[in-house]
Design a binder for these strands. Structure first.
Lengths: 246, 246
DNA sequence: CGCTTACTTGAGTCTGGTCAAACGGGGTGG
DNA sequence: CCACCCCGTTTGACCAGACTCAAGTAAGCG
C-alpha cells in the first residue's frame, strides 16, 4: 500500500458527475485541508479490518471493493459494495472500532481523512455534517433492501436484484472501465452476498444467462438487461436524486 | 392517534438511563423547543408508511415497535425493532420519502419533531448533529449484524441471536413492563425477522425452550439465559458504551 | 508443464417450506 | 350464558429448494 497525495479536491473527477451535489467554495476549501493523502491498494487486499481501531476515514476515488463480516467458523457475509464516491470507515470513526472489514475487488485509490478533524467538520461545516448523516441514512436504506432480499426473495430473485443494483450503482458513478461494463466479482462473492452456496449460485446465474439477462465473463458479470433483472426481482428501482459526497 | 404535549424534555425519563450521554443545558433547551408534541398509538397501528412523505421525525418515548418492508406479493421482512430512545423517520426526513414502514407492537408514545428545523439543528448544535450521525451509523451496524445472521446463520442460530439481541437492548433501555420481562412479539414476527416460515420458526423456538434458554408466553418470549443464547448463535455481544439520543 | 483459481455439472442429502388439521384462549353477538 | 370465531400456536406428513460432496474443465501464471 502506498500513500502519495495527488488528486486535488478542487479538481476531483468525481465532483463532475451529475449524481453529486454542488459544493460551496468554502466547503471545497475545507475538504482540501481535511484530506491528508491518498491510499492505493491491490485487488484482494484488506483495507480495513473488523475489530481494528482506525484513525482514518476514507472516500473511494477509484475501484471496487466490498464490506463483509465473518462468523467464527469462517462463514462470510458480504454486506455491501463500495464504489467511487462512497465513504468507508465512518462507523470506526464514530465508535472507535470497526465492526466489518473492507476488501478490494480491483486496484483501488482512496482519499484519506483524519478522524480527529471530524469535530471540526461538525462545528464549522453544517452542510457537510448533514451530508455525512445523509450518507449514513442512505447506506441504511441499502442495507434494508439487501435484508429484504436475503430474507424474503428466492435465489433467482436475489441474484437478479443484486446484479441490477450493482449495475445501476456502477453506471451512476462511472465505475466501469472504458473497455467493458463488467462487474468485477467472482461467483463466490455473489454467493456470500446472497447467502447461498457457490454451487447453487452458479446454477442460478446460469438461469439468468439462459434468459439472456446477463453474460458471465472471465471473473465478472456483464449485465445485458437491467429492466429484465429488476422485473425478475420484483424490485422498484426508484429515484436517483442528487447525493452528497465528501 | 392522539397528540398532546406532555413530557418535558428537561425531565425526560430516558435521560436518566445510564446508556445515554449527558446533554449540555444548551442542548436540552434546543431539544425542548424542537419537540412539537407527542404522539400515542395502539398496538398494531402503522406509525409510518413506506412511500409516505413524512414531515416529522420521532423519538420513541414508550413501547415497542418494528420497521419492515414488503414485497409486492405480501412477503414481509422485519428490518429492526424500535425501542425507547430510538429515532424513527430520519431517512424520510433526509430523502423526503420513507422506504420502510413502522408498526407498533405495544401501545407506544413518541416525541414529535419538525423536520424543517433539522437545518437549524445542524447549523447551531454540532453536538446533536454528531449524535444524529452516530445514531445512523449505529443502526447501520445493527443491520450489518442482522444481515450476517439471515444470510449465514442456521435457523437455530438466528433465533438465538435475535432473542439475545432483543433481550439486551430491551434491558438497556428499561423497555420491559415491571411485571414481566416478555418480548412482545408473535412467532409470526420472529419468522419475518429471520426470513423463515412460521411453522419452522415454531419448531426452532421449541428447541430453544427444550434447552431451557427461553419460555414462550402468551404473545411473547421470556429469555431465561442470554449467555446461553449468544453461545448458540456464536455471537459476541460486545460493548455497551454511552450512546446519544435526541 | 504443473499448479492454482474459478467455473461447471451431477448425485444424493437435508434444512426448511407448504399444506393440513387441531387446540386453546379471548372476544363478541345472539 | 353460550356458541362461535378468530388469532396464535402446535404438530405431522410430504415436498422442494438449497447444500454438500465430488469430479471435471478451462484459463492464467510461475
Amino acid at each position: 500500500m502506498t500513500r502519495i497525495a495527488r488528486t486535488d479536491c478542487k479538481a476531483c473527477p468525481l465532483r463532475k458527475l451529475s449524481v453529486f451535489r454542488k459544493f460551496s467554495s468554502n466547503e471545497i476549501e475545507f475538504v482540501s485541508t481535511f484530506k491528508t493523502g491518498e491510499l492505493s491498494c491491490d485487488r484482494g487486499s484488506t483495507v480495513l479490518q473488523e475489530g481494528a481501531h482506525s484513525a482514518h476515514l476514507y472516500t473511494v476515488l477509484k475501484g471496487w471493493g466490498f464490506r463483509h463480516k465473518l462468523l467464527e467458523d469462517g462463514r462470510r457475509q458480504i454486506l455491501n459494495y463500495v464504489l467511487p464516491g462512497d465513504l468507508v470507515g465512518l462507523q470506526g470513526s464514530l465508535t472507535h472500532e470497526m465492526h466489518h472489514s473492507v476488501e478490494a475487488l480491483t486496484p483501488m485509490v482512496f482519499c484519506v481523512f483524519e478522524r480527529d478533524r471530524i469535530d471540526e467538520l461538525f462545528r464549522n461545516h453544517p452542510g457537510l455534517a448533514y451530508d455525512l448523516t445523509w450518507i449514513a441514512a442512505r447506506e441504511e436504506g441499502i442495507l434494508d433492501e439487501h435484508l429484504l432480499s436475503v430474507g424474503r426473495r428466492s435465489a433467482l430473485e436475489r441474484a437478479a436484484y443484486l446484479l441490477a443494483f450493482l449495475q445501476i450503482r456502477a453506471r451512476s458513478v462511472n465505475a466501469f472501465n472504458p473497455s467493458s461494463d463488467v462487474i468485477p466479482v467472482t461467483q463466490h462473492h455473489i454467493a456470500d452476498t446472497l447467502g447461498l452456496s457457490t454451487v447453487h449460485t452458479n446454477k442460478t446465474l446460469r438461469k439468468l444467462v439462459k434468459r439472456g439477462l446477463i453474460l458471465w465473463r472471465d471473473r465478472g458479470c456483464e449485465v445485458l438487461d437491467v429492466e429484465g433483472l429488476s422485473a425478475v426481482a420484483g424490485w422498484d428501482v426508484g429515484h436517483g436524486g442528487d447525493r452528497p459526497f465528501v
